[in-house]
């Protein structure tokens, strides 16, 4: 299950995104700093996404019991995520990715209450961020919270690595090493993030330089990736 979701060939729309790498390179990040930048993401903004997915999954798994509170509880998770994502460019990108992921989820787990609940939320609000959809997929497919965290971190790192190969020609095995290093950097945080149960407990670890680059990138006309 995690393998399918982590595969870039799954048509979720991720290919149009660089996980903030293109904005970073255009903003002046030296290519030599990419591995440190990837490890930095894996221990900051990736954990915000991961924690959001974990809590969304728990809220959705509790579904039928709290049917009346369901939409409100899910909306609270999204509010917590939005308050932890100060860059509008990054929120927009995540919501766009959420649409692609939701299409995948509705096709592969059509009728599952968690997916139906998130589709309802998307219909009410126009869109939901990728992390919330990932939570629905986790609830529908029975992914463990720790797997949700690792999947989110890996997906983010691999998205950046794939984008790098299009932006700076490089041996793909070199970037594969960096992906593994980024995942290893996040590993000590996995238990803490997997244990998140409430919106308040979602990590809030920010990356101001990445956020600044994202805003500048959103105004550019010449770019390969959306974000």
């Amino acid at each position: 299950m995690a393998l399918l979701l982590a595969d870039a060939r799954l048509p979720g729309g991720g290919h149009a995104h660089s996980a903030s790498l293109e904005p970073a390179l255009l903003g002046g990040l030296p290519a030599a700093d990419v591995p440190a930048w990837m490890a930095g993401r894996a221990t900051t903004v990736s954990l915000v996404e991961a924690g959001t997915a974990v809590v969304a999954s728990r809220v959705l798994a509790a579904g039928p019991v709290a049917e009346d509170d369901g939409p409100a509880a899910l909306a609270a998770v999204e509010r917590a995520w939005a308050a932890r994502t100060p860059s509008q460019a990054l929120r927009d990108a995540a919501r766009l990715l959420g649409r692609g992921y939701l299409r995948v989820a509705r096709t592969l787990w059509s009728g599952h209450p968690a997916v139906v609940a998130v589709a309802g939320q998307a219909a009410r609000h126009g869109s939901v961020p990728r992390a919330v959809v990932l939570g629905a997929v986790a609830a529908a497919s029975g992914l463990t919270p720790a797997d949700v965290v690792r999947l989110t971190v890996y997906d983010d790192a691999q998205t950046a690595a794939s984008a790098l190969l299009k932006l700076e020609p490089l041996d793909p095995l070199v970037t594969a090493r960096w992906v593994l290093d980024a995942c290893a950097a996040a590993e000590p945080h996995v238990p803490r993030v997997a244990a998140c149960t409430t919106p308040e407990s979602i990590p809030a670890s920010g990356a101001p330089q990445t956020e600044g680059w994202a805003e500048a990138h959103a105004l550019r006309t010449q770019r390969l990736f959306r974000a």
Binding site: A24, W37, R41, T44
Partner: peptide
Amino acid sequence: GPVLVEEVTACGTDRVPGVL
């Protein structure tokens, strides 16, 4: 509800690209 929740951690001897 929440308007802004943020935690920025920085260390002068361990500069992280993307953070500061």
